[in-house]
């Protein structure tokens, strides 16, 4: 396969040495993106919906055991395995934002994309969202409520990206670094998540992505993820 130069745009840095595993990102994401709560039984069946999940690992030998947390969301691959398998072009690459999009109205629920995703980032709606009476007031009007039979995944809060871009263009100025943040980044109390423009070498996220602790999740697959993880492994205060 010919190498195609991938234009960098939005990127996320996850500092695992800072993550305390509080799961605030998971909650914030669910509220921002109208992610339905499927209940215990469905999660036990592997039918839970969550756009970001916190992988917990135990490190070290007893009695010196410490937990390590790894928040995993859609890695917004530059060369995404989910895209070429979609028969209806519901999983498409955004040329403007350089992220992977899921166009819900096109999705017919073949689930090929989820089977091809190495990160378990995609969730399928096995049932219509059941939102009881007072909770429907919490739904975010900027995000479509997905119905049964539709695949969904983290979008880097593209509604915030588009909104920020439109606000900036209305005020006739370029987007500032850190102006647009996904819900998980805004909610992170320890500052473990940093979001920004990777094509700007001076942005905070570009600086952090060049840290010596950096690694990409399953980089050997050649998916070119936009999410960079930082982990010192005990060397750099980790």
């Amino acid at each position: 396969m010919a190498e195609v130069s991938i234009a960098e745009k939005w990127g996320l840095v996850v500092d695992q040495d800072r993550c305390t595993g509080c799961n605030a990102c998971v909650v914030a994401c669910s509220m921002e993106n109208n992610v339905p709560f499927t209940g215990e039984d469905n999660v036990a069946f592997g039918r839970g919906t969550y756009w970001i999940y916190n992988k917990r690992m135990w490190e070290g030998e007893y009695p010196r055991v410490a937990p390590a947390f790894q928040p995993v969301m859609c890695q917004q691959c530059g060369s995404a395995p989910c895209e070429p398998v979609c028969p209806t072009f519901a999983a498409v690459h955004s040329e403007e934002e350089q992220i992977n999009l899921q166009v819900y109205i096109r999705c017919i629920g073949t689930r090929y994309c989820a089977n091809n995703c190495p990160y378990h980032a995609r969730q399928f709606n096995f049932q219509d969202p059941d939102i009881p009476e007072p909770m429907n007031s919490y739904l975010n009007p900027d995000v479509t409520v997905r119905s049964k039979g539709v695949m969904e995944k983290c979008t880097f809060c593209v509604q915030r990206i588009v909104g920020g871009r439109q606000t900036a263009s209305a005020e006739d100025r370029p987007l500032r670094d850190g102006e647009v943040t996904p819900a998980c980044v805004a909610a992170c109390p320890s500052g473990a998540l940093v979001f920004g423009d990777l094509s700007d070498p001076n942005s905070r996220v570009s600086q952090m992505a060049q840290n010596e602790r950096q690694y990409k999740l399953m980089d050997e697959l050649g998916t070119k993820p936009k999410v960079t993880y930082l982990k010192g492994g005990g060397r750099n205060g980790g």
């Binding site: 955004s94 040329e95 403007e96 934002e97 992220i99 819900y104 593209v158 509604q159 990206i161 588009v162």
Partner: peptide
């Protein structure tokens, strides 16, 4: 055109 034909401009 790249921006204005992007799916994410209207559908998310």
């Amino acid at each position: 055109w790249t921006k204005l034909s992007d799916c994410a401009t209207c559908h998310y």
